[in-house]
């Protein structure tokens, strides 16, 4: 089941030339994906975040750091759509600026998990033996701890901060990525084309890059997408308790911490940052679920 080779044409059934490209699993999956309104909406929202991450300084209505102590906790108004905070700063502008962290933080975590988990998993799935046994036991041990507890212990070593805390989360997430990729690599390594590649003297590096990686890419992509959402939730939690993003920077998680401090004066200050978090995680999950479904459908086609 490879996505690289052209789909086999059954000889006993005449096939119109134009129908041929559609039978590739990748195309079937892509077509199904772009026919899903939920997935397209999720993609559009994430694209908006990406735009804000790059262009927020140019499009924010106010300077996110500008204080106006005469206008604190103003509540939503025509001038300030989401109101102002304890220092009279514009909440909408602060949220738009924090979109950058909402994308960068999960990328650091998932990137760390991928750097640790993926090469180990490919080798473990391909070569099995001692690498597989040791990596497997280690993954079991790491997964027997709550991810957030392990992340906190690692933050004790690295020190608090956005990058450090997200590396810690990435280390805690590595086993789940390892398991998914190892499973796919193990299944692929038993395919006939892998045997043929080995028998004609392919190097391990070539086997991994040309034959293994394209075949584990689909399940890996699904897991990475889901982990992005989980990592954003971890960032919010760690920033909420002060181990993540440090002032003067702020993320939606640290904005929730500010809202918590001021909950008696402004009981609904927590609504906007929390809703932004939930919506972003929702988009990653919808994207991941749709990818899983369309990839499965592509394989059946």
């Amino acid at each position: 089941m490879t996505t690289l080779s052209p789909a086999p044409v059954p000889v006993d059934r005449p096939v119109a030339a134009s129908a041929l490209p559609n039978r590739s699993p990748m195309r079937t999956a892509a077509r199904a994906f772009f026919r899903s309104p939920a997935a397209l909406s999720a993609l559009a929202f994430l694209a908006l975040l990406l735009f804000l991450a790059v262009a927020a300084p140019l499009v924010v209505p106010y300077d996110p750091a500008a204080q106006n102590l005469a206008n604190r906790f103003s509540g939503p108004s025509a001038e300030h759509w989401l109101g102002t905070d304890e220092f009279g700063r514009d909440v909408l502008s602060r949220m738009m600026t924090a979109a950058q962290i909402a994308l960068v933080a999960p990328l650091i975590a998932v990137g760390t998990a991928a750097v640790i988990g993926v090469p180990t998993a490919l080798l473990a799935g391909l070569r099995r033996g001692a690498i597989d046994a040791v990596a497997g036991r280690l993954a079991d041990a790491v997964m027997s701890l709550p991810a957030l507890a392990l992340a906190m212990a690692i933050i004790a070593i690295l020190g608090p901060g956005l990058v450090n805390s997200m590396i810690a989360v990435g280390i805690a997430f590595a086993p789940s990525l390892f398991r998914v990729v190892r499973g796919a690599a193990l299944a692929t390594s038993r395919e006939t084309f892998m045997e043929s590649a080995e028998s004609i003297g392919c190097t391990t590096r070539r086997m991994v890059w040309v034959h293994l990686l394209p075949n584990v890419a689909a399940p890996m992509l699904v897991q990475v997408t889901i982990l992005m959402g989980v990592a954003l939730l971890a960032e919010a939690g760690l920033s909420f308790i002060g181990l993540g993003v440090q002032p003067p920077d702020s993320s939606w998680g640290s904005m929730l911490a500010d809202a918590y401090q001021n909950q008696f004066r402004d009981p609904f200050g927590a609504v906007a940052p929390g809703a932004a978090l939930a919506l972003t995680v929702l988009c990653f999950n919808v994207l991941g679920d749709t990818l899983r479904d369309v990839i499965a459908a592509g394989r059946r086609a």
């Binding site: 939730l233 939690g237 909950q263 929390g274 939930a278 929702l282």
Partner: peptide, 22 residues
């Protein structure tokens, strides 16, 4: 689908502000 996406501590803040403080 919504429940999975919501940060638990945010839900706690909302529940406490509604059921305890209001």
């Amino acid at each position: 689908t919504l429940g999975i996406a919501m940060p638990g501590f945010w839900v706690a803040m909302l529940l406490i502000s509604i059921f305890a403080m209001k």
